[in-house]
Each structure stands twice: as C-alpha cells, then as structure tokens.
Simulated scan of single mutants.
Amino acid sequence: MGQSISAPAERLSAHVNGINLSFLSQGEGPLVIFMHGFPDLAISWRHQMKAVAEAGYRAVAPDMRGYGDTDAPDDPALYSQFHIAGDITGLMDHLGEETAVLVGHDMGANVDWAMATFVPERVRGVVVLSIPHKPRGAQPPVASSPPRFYQRLFQELGVEEADLASKVDTFIPGIFDRLSGSSELGAPPALIVPEGQHFSDLFQPPKAAPAWMGQEEIDTYVETFKRTGFRGALNWYRNIDNNWHTAAPWAPGHVQVPAAFIIGTVDVAWALFKDNGVIDSQVHRVPNLWDVRVLEGVGHWIAQERPDDVNDLLLTFLAKLDS
C-alpha cells in the first residue's frame, strides 16, 4: 500500500443489529476495524487510525455497544459476544465489505478472538493488544474467580455503575494513570477490591493527566461518561460466564486466521496471564501467530502509551497480509 495523506477522522453512524452504532472513519482502502475495551472510547485509537489511513487503508473505530455515542441497551443479556460480533459484522455489511482486519484491546481483544473463532470467513486477520488467546477453562471464569475480584463485583446490577457515575471526575484520570506504566504511584494495583470498598477506590487520581494522554482527552472521557453512565460498559462483564457457556460448541476455540499480539510488562494482563503460561502457550492455539511483542515498562493503555510501537506492529502485519 502506498502512503498518502488522509483527511481527519469523520464521525458517522449506522443502524446495525438493532442499535445505532457511532463510529470514526478515516482513510480509504481495505477495511481495518478497531475495537476498544473498558473504560475506553473510539478516540483511544486516534494514533493508529491516522497511521493506518496514511498507509492506504480505511480505519474505522466504533464506540462499542454501551459506550459513547452508540446505543446502550439496559438489558445485560444484550451484550453477549454474539451481539457484539453481530454489531461488527453488521458494520462491515453497512460499509460494503465482506471482510476486515480486526484490532482489539482489553474487552475488544476478546471480540477479536471470538470473531476469529466463530466467523473466520469475515476476518482477514487479528491484531490483539493486552489480552492473549486463552484456553477454555473447565469452569465459568467469573464464578470461579476470587470473591472480591473486580469482575465478580460487576455482576450485581446497579451497585458499581452507581459508584463509578458518582466519581467520574476522579475515576477516569485515576484508572488511566494507575494502569499505565508511568504512574508516580508505582506498579498497578491488584484487581482484588478490599472488603467494604468499590472498584473505584483502587484508582486515586493523579496530580496531572498522564503525559501520553493529555488533559483534553481526559476531559473528553469524563464528559462522555458523565452523559452515558457505566451501565452499558459493565454489562459486557455480566456476559463473561454466559459467553463461556455459549462458546462450548467451538471448544477448544483454536484461531486459524493470521494474528499478532502485543503487551507491556506493566500491564495488569501481564500479571494475570504470564506466570500461568497463557501468554507463552497461545502459539499452540493460534498456529498463525505471526508476531508477538513484549514492551518493557508499558502498562495497559499500550496503544496510547506507546503508539509508535503499536503502529509498527500493525503496519508490519498489514504489509505481510497484503504481500
């Protein structure tokens, strides 16, 4: 693909899979879809979208179901991995594309792996940030987790979203700082919430916005979540065990499409999945894992903390895919 100067990202919308999906679009060419996690928005991919568009691709980043300007149904049952996959395939159809390269981070990374398993004919390849391909365990993952693990707390309707909504001004800068690789408070906290506390209590706000994000971006996140609340975002977590059950026909869930993976050594996901061997063993479940990169000292927000490294991985992968 030849390099070209692309116009800035444009905000568009589409009615797909029963919801109105808002998305950013930049550039023209083969489709690359970027999928964010919690508590992120489409703008988290701003660095990657520009690079991909200038390389001759169409970069599209939705506010995922439940986030930002996209619809957020109240019913948790409407956030299964099949609903999310339907949103993305519906977006492809809306854009007139049969296939796309999928790029995902955090909960969006799980969408990468799921779609590559369930509808590989729609997926040219996947680039995955932070969350490795995991084997299907013997038990539902949330139900078998420690009692005060944050995902267990998210299961109770109304409690954690109300707390987060009351603390948006401190929670948003706090989580972006504390889960990064540059927090003055040191290593990220374990994601076990002490008795009598809320998830938000793990994330005290920094004195200033992280240098890799900036106050303007923080303000955008704060203003958005003040408007939308967190119900839709937490509904994703309320489907984790249901997703485990409904994925049974595809077990063990090997991914055959080309893939690339990148993670930082200060990422909370590194702590969760390195010592138990999940990161190293994913090569056995993803035989076409073309590239694996580990960035020293980088935290969870890898696409924003180290955009040049992520862009290099992404553009190298796309060039190989199209060679």
Rank of each mutant, 00 (worst) to 15 (best):
R11D: 10
A14S: 03
H15R: 14
H15K: 09
N17F: 06
N17C: 07
N20H: 01
L21G: 14
L21Y: 12
L21R: 07
S22P: 02
F23I: 13
F23N: 13
L24V: 07
L24T: 07
G29S: 10
G29V: 05
L31D: 07
I33W: 15
I33V: 03
I33L: 03
F34N: 03
M35P: 13
H36W: 01
F38T: 01
P39I: 15
L41H: 10
L41A: 05
A42K: 09
A42W: 12
A42R: 02
A42C: 07
I43C: 02
I43A: 12
S44Y: 00
S44D: 11
W45C: 01
R46S: 08
R46Q: 09
H47K: 09
Q48W: 07
A55W: 03
A55H: 11
R58K: 07
V60M: 09
A61H: 11
M64P: 04
R65C: 04
G66N: 09
Y67S: 14
Y67I: 05
G68Y: 14
D69S: 10
D71R: 02
P73D: 09
P73E: 11
D74C: 09
D74N: 06
D75F: 01
P76Y: 02
P76L: 12
P76T: 10
Y79D: 03
Y79F: 02
F82G: 00
I84N: 13
A85W: 11
A85Y: 05
G86E: 03
G86T: 04
G90Q: 04
L91P: 11
L91Q: 08
L91M: 05
D93N: 06
H94P: 00
L95A: 09
E98P: 02
V101M: 10
V101C: 11
V101F: 01
V103A: 06
H105W: 14
H105Y: 13
D106W: 11
M107N: 08
M107T: 11
M107L: 04
G108I: 10
A109H: 11
D112E: 07
W113E: 00
M115T: 06
M115S: 12
M115A: 14
